[in-house]
Nucleic acid binder design. Structure first.
Length: 287
DNA sequence: AAGAGGCCCTGATAGC
DNA sequence: TGCTATCAGGGCCTCT
């Protein structure tokens, strides 16, 4: 669920809180994430300074003082929580998790700084940490990724050229990180809705105007989501009891059976499983 | 080589 | 009330 906008929101809050701070200690409570946390992980990070926090696609990149990098992917359900030392009730959620309290279960990693610690919580354990030793290996790590959706390289010429002879449907390309980085299942539906393109349309049938729309609305949808603080969040059980606003941010996602939001369109939002992923679209205005 | 589908995992929810 | 089945989806893997 964390797609590019949510990860960017996390990156910004992390950068604000831990830039130039020194890691005092790392506690691993469960190494069995999507990738097993190596046994030297804690020792490696100890006493390194976090120079700054960057992001590529859905990866958070901690730039460390020995010129190495620690990558963090939040998977489906990974969240970060900042807890001041000895003040457990003053937790700051760096992710999109709504609870004002420190989660109890699934706190797998704690990164401890001078006056606070960062907790990595991940019920489903699809997330992972990865140490990258130098810049060259970092570049290698991402060399097979497509351009980020917000990058200038993601333009209509790139798309039009890429789609030649490609018979896969457009929706599957939008969530394919080799084609474009950062878009996930939720925003793929939202972007195609704005483009008025049917998700099952074969990529090679898209004209230049279609490709132009994909560029424009990919950027617009993601930037709007960043501005709103990351919206693709299905509410976790909210201990504070406040109503979640997950659904109202979307035009099609999770809106099966409801009316199309485009003015003058009398369509109904349909749900279709494409390659085992739920896809939502308007049956009238998306051609 | 492209594309489809399976798998990892836990929690929320639906249905009986 | 309590059980089981289903669904959620990011990325990597295998198979055709």
């Amino acid at each position: 669920m964390p797609e590019l906008p949510e990860v960017e929101v996390v990156r910004r809050s992390l950068d604000e809180k831990i830039k130039q701070k020194k890691i005092k200690k790392v506690i691993i409570r469960n190494r069995n994430l999507r990738l097993k946390i190596p046994y030297n992980f804690s020792n490696f990070l100890k006493n390194l300074k976090v120079i700054k926090i960057e992001r590529f696609s859905k990866y958070i990149i901690f730039n460390l003082s020995n010129n190495s990098y620690c990558l963090l992917h939040l998977g489906m359900s990974g969240t970060l929580h900042l807890v001041p030392r000895n003040k457990k009730n003053l937790i700051t959620n760096l992710s999109f998790y709504n609870s004002p309290f420190q989660p109890i279960k699934h706190n797998h990693v704690e990164i401890i700084f001078d006056n606070f610690k960062i907790i990595y919580n991940d019920p489903r354990r699809f997330g992972f940490f990865e140490i990258i030793n130098d810049k060259e290996k970092l570049i290698k790590k991402f060399k097979n990724f497509g351009p980020e959706a917000l990058d200038k390289k993601f333009n209509k010429e790139y798309i039009y050229h890429y789609f030649k002879n490609k018979k896969k449907n457009i929706k599957n390309f939008l969530i394919d990180q080799k084609f474009v980085s950062g878009i996930g299942n939720i925003y793929a539906s939202e972007i195609l809705f704005e483009c008025k393109i049917n998700p099952i349309k074969k990529a090679n049938l898209l004209n230049k105007d279609n490709c132009d729309k994909i560029v424009i609305f990919s950027k617009k949808v993601l930037l709007d989501a960043i501005r709103k603080g990351g919206s693709s969040i299905k509410n976790f059980k909210n201990i504070a009891g406040t109503e979640g606003n997950f659904q109202k941010n979307f035009n099609v996602y999770f809106r099966e059976g409801l009316n199309c939001k485009k003015s003058k369109c009398h369509g109904t939002i349909k749900k279709k499983i494409i390659s085992n992923r739920s896809t939502f679209f308007c049956n009238i205005c998306q051609k």
